[in-house]
Write a protein that binds this DNA or RNA. Structure first.
Lengths: 136, 136
DNA sequence: ACTTGGTACTTGCAAAATGCAAGCGCAAAG
DNA sequence: CTTTGCGCTTGCATTTTGCAAGTACCAAGT
């Protein structure tokens, strides 16, 4: 953890993941079932390898992601959400809802429509699902 | 608006306010009743003048904030939330909740406690209040 | 044993963003 | 007609980002 600018909880949150990339990695783990370096690289936003590497290290240090070696391949690592990381779900959902509402070219797909219909239910449903995947 | 990295609504949102400062300005307007350049400068996170200036311009361009000259002083400007800006409230609330939950040194004050008790009610209450201040 | 491919990075360098201090232009007040 | 307040802009150093290339390790094929 670097420095925190104040003791405001909003500011503290932004100190950790207030950038253009961290929450996209979280999105990939949370909603797209991605869990490895190479999978993150394939996302359409095209994150650079060094940025990905540094963000994964930061998210791990912040205990938002956990890292373990794959059981079948010792040179592969698996990233998973911790409880702290899973609790970012409402933020991700709100970001999606706002983005979809104000960008015509961001069509709501299945999840987006469910959020529009009943946001709280979607959060409950996904939180339940994430619970099973949580690592310390 | 610069470029957007993909048509994912989360990514689109981050393209606009995915940095360490934009949402702190929104917080100041939304929760602290601030509405001028000099008031934003006084916040404890100590934003630099040039950064503040560029962020205000970006938020205005994104139609999240509106800018008008003060009725009593032609050299003063008043920044207010638009509907699009006010709709960021749930994101701000979730950022506050997560930050307070995971940082011991970020004590929940009045609002933080109300959020913990009944998040949806807080959002409703504040959204109602913001409605009266909205500008196009 | 030796090559090929997959995975996860690191490194070097250029470009962009941030942070800091100082200065500027205008309007209102004294 | 000077001073104060407000909202910036500018110049410059530092930091972060982005891009391309290279490295290291493991595993599987031949």
């Amino acid at each position: 953890m670097s420095k925190q600018r104040s003791d405001c909880p909003i500011s503290c949150s932004l100190d950790i993941f207030g950038d253009k990339w961290s929450l996209l990695i979280i999105r990939d783990v949370m909603l797209r079932g991605k869990c490895s370096y190479s999978e993150f690289l394939k996302s359409e936003e095209k994150i650079a390898t060094n940025i990905l590497s540094s963000r994964l290290a930061l998210l791990e240090a912040a205990q938002i992601l956990s890292k373990e070696t794959a059981p079948d391949n010792r040179s592969k690592f698996i990233y998973r959400l911790t409880q702290k990381g899973a609790d970012l779900l409402p933020i991700i959902v709100e970001l999606m809802d706002w983005g979809a509402r104000y960008h015509d070219h961001c069509p709501r797909r299945e999840l987006g429509k469910k959020i529009k219909k009943n946001k709280a239910a979607v959060i409950d449903e996904y939180m339940q699902r994430l619970k099973e995947q949580i690592r310390s």
